[in-house]
Nucleic acid binder design. Structure first.
Lengths: 140, 140
DNA sequence: TATGGACCTTCCCATCATGGTAAGGTCAAG
DNA sequence: CTTGACCTTACCATGATGGGAAGGTCCATA
C-alpha cells in the first residue's frame, strides 16, 4: 500500500512517516518502480505501535527503545516497566509544574474584580509588587 | 547596567533578553559608546515582569498583551482577567491530557510483572492487542 | 489519446522558547 | 601589554510537526 493509505490506516501523517524513516525510527520502506514507498502489514503494525506510544506521550527516543524491546523476544518486562515508570515520572513532573501555575493563577483570578477599573492583582503580581503567599498572610 | 547584570538581576538569560528585543517584546536597549546595551531600572522591572509571566506559563504573545495592559492606565481588569482565564483553560487542557496519559500508563505498569520474562502488557497494549478499558471490564 | 485530478517524490522553511558556539570587539586590572 | 571577563552579531540546534513548492506517476474519463 502507498504512504497515504498507511497514513489513513494508522493515524500517522505521511509527513511523519517519511520523517520517522529519515531519522531511522523505522526501516526504509520498499519502493515500487514509480519510486513510491510501499508498505505492508508489518509496517502498518509498527506505525500503529508508534502512534499509540506517541499518544501516551513517549518521546521519539523512548519509542526507539520501546520498538527495540518489542522486537526482542528475550526482553525482560522489567526493562519495559522501568522505561515506562521513568516516563510516568516525567509526566508527573510536568503535571506538577502546570498544576502550580494553575494554582497561582486561579488564586490571582479569584482576587481580580474583572471590572472596568484598572486595578488588578494579576498585573500587580507580575509587576513584582509581592510574591503570592496564601490568602491568610496576615494570620501569622 | 550591562546585559549580564540585568540578566542576573532578573533571571532572564542575556540570550533571551536580546531575543526579546529582536522580536519587539521589549524596546531596543540604549547603547553605550562601546555598543554595549545599557539597561535602567525600568528595563529591569519589565524583564522581571516577563520572567514572572513566563514562570506562570504565559506564551510570548500573551506576555505581549500583558505588557500592553500593564502600561495602559485605562485598562480594565476585566481584560486582564479574561486573558488569564484563557491561559488557565489552556493549562487545564494540558493537565487533563497529561493526566489521561498518566492514568493509562500507571494502569499498565500495575499490570506488568516487571520480571525477567518478556510477557508485558505495556508492550502488548502498544502493539495494539486491545484498547485499555477499566480493570472492571467484565463487570458489565 | 489526451487531460485532469489524486497521489506521490524531494527539498526547504516555520513553529516555540531556548541554548550553544564561533569570531571578534571592549574594558579594567595586573 | 597581556589576561580575563564581558560584550557584540550571526549561525545552528533542539522536538515533533506542518506548510508549501516544483515536479513525477498513475488511473479514469472525455
Amino acid at each position: 500500500m502507498q504512504i497515504g493509505e498507511a497514513s489513513r490506516a494508522t493515524g500517522v501523517s505521511a509527513k511523519m512517516i517519511r520523517h520517522y524513516e529519515s531519522i531511522g525510527l523505522i526501516p526504509a520502506a520498499d519502493r515500487r518502480d514509480s519510486n513510491y514507498r510501499d508498505y505492508g502489514a508489518e509496517d502498518v503494525h509498527r506505525l500503529g505501535f508508534i502512534r499509540r506510544a506517541r499518544d501516551l506521550g513517549f518521546s521519539i527516543e523512548e519509542i526507539r527503545d520501546l520498538l527495540r524491546l518489542w522486537g526482542d523476544r528475550k526482553r525482560s518486562s522489567r526493562d519495559v516497566k522501568a522505561l515506562t515508570l521513568a516516563h510516568v515520572a516525567e509526566l508527573d513532573a510536568k503535571i506538577a509544574l502546570l498544576g502550580e501555575m494553575r494554582a497561582t493563577l486561579s488564586h490571582l483570578v479569584q482576587c481580580c474584580d474583572g471590572d472596568n477599573r484598572p486595578d488588578c492583582p494579576i498585573i500587580e503580581s507580575l509587576a513584582g509588587a509581592a510574591p503570592i503567599h496564601s490568602k491568610h498572610m496576615h494570620r501569622h
